[in-house]
Simulated assay, not measured.
Amino acid sequence: MLRAHQLDPAEWEVTGFRSSEWTMPNGEPGVSARFSFGRRKGGPVAARPSIDELLQVFDEAPVFVPVIEEGEYTFIVALGDMQFGKIDGDGFRGTLTRAIECIDRAVVLLETYRERFDIEHVHLAWLGDHIEGFQSQGGANTWRTGLTLTEQIRLTRRLMAHAIVRFAPAVSRLTVAAVPGNHGEAVRPNGKGVTRYDDSHDTDALISVSEALALAGEEFAHVEVYVPDSDELTVVVECSGTVVAHAHGHQWRAGKHFEWWRGQAFDKTSAMHTADLLLAGHLHHELVDTNGPRTFVQVPAMESESTWWRHRTGTRGAPGLMVMVTKGGEVPVKEVVR
């Protein structure tokens, strides 16, 4: 009966049976039998695959030959939290030396990744707290800050210029972005208020570098500089079809980055609703998180440690920067450079 209805008997089983008997009008006995069917829960029993056939896949696998991925990719270099001026850890000398060395290693990595990807665009992301400043703790950090404010800013400008000079000759497009951090705030009236949210030494340092680039001539004509608009804390830059958003990270609590991002994206006038990748610093340790097609990358601090945090938790820093390769909203490469 199952075959007559084009059903495979192996996929069905009897789930019920009922039989009845009676005497028909002609005196003969009548008999009725009823069956109910249901699909087998496990379906038909599949034959076990041959392990030899599976192992043969390894023998027949072709030798991998690296090829350059199609389409133009962007190489991202993201760093922050140098906090130049602090005496913590190996101090500002150690931080400056490490930052220069990490940037130089990133230049070498660019050539390494060009063996896999077509890269003609490098993006430098400066994620805030480049100086220790004297505003974040209301001046309580003054004794533990060994550089003047102008010296801290000067180091930041020179490091930004160093990165641009190292990468500019290697690519046809170089974009550079900076966002304000809490330590870089220019003014805090009465220790609590703020001026405009973009009033920051972190971003002004890059603006000063861009003015110098404008005087440098054609050699740096392909360099583009991005900072937040007036009274804003974030900026987005298009990188090979990936919309890269930048924030320092002091706008949300630890672990709440996607909740903050969703809130910003709800405002259609904000460019954050178009972002594929969000870069941040502030919390001084590396973190990569994904939610569907969106990626969040938090970079480690460049300073070696926060002595206050070490006394509180016993944790020292793991300083460095991060490099990424991106195209079309995807970030197939994320690497820490120390």
Rank of each mutant, 00 (worst) to 15 (best):
A275R: 02
L213N: 06
D202Q: 11
A245K: 01
L283K: 08
D202G: 11
L279V: 12
A275M: 11
S270H: 07
L278N: 00
T269C: 02
L283T: 09
A221I: 04
T234L: 03
F220R: 07
H201Q: 12
H222Y: 10
S230R: 07
A271P: 10
D202N: 10
S200E: 02
E259I: 08
D276H: 14
E232I: 00
H222G: 07
H273A: 07
H201G: 03
T274M: 15
T234V: 07
K256E: 15
H222C: 07
Q264D: 01
W261S: 05
A254L: 14
W261F: 15
L277M: 13
P228Q: 09
S210I: 01
I207F: 05
K256R: 15
S230E: 03
Q264I: 02
L278E: 01
V244H: 00
L277W: 07
V244M: 01
G249L: 08
S230F: 14
H257M: 12
W261L: 13
V223Y: 04
V225E: 01
G249A: 12
S240H: 06
D229V: 05
G249D: 09
A247P: 00
C239K: 01
H246M: 13
E218W: 06
H248N: 13
A212E: 12
L277K: 09
F266W: 08
E211T: 05
Q264C: 08
S208C: 13
G255W: 04
E238D: 13
K256T: 13
S270N: 13
Q264R: 15
G281Q: 01
S208V: 12
E224T: 14
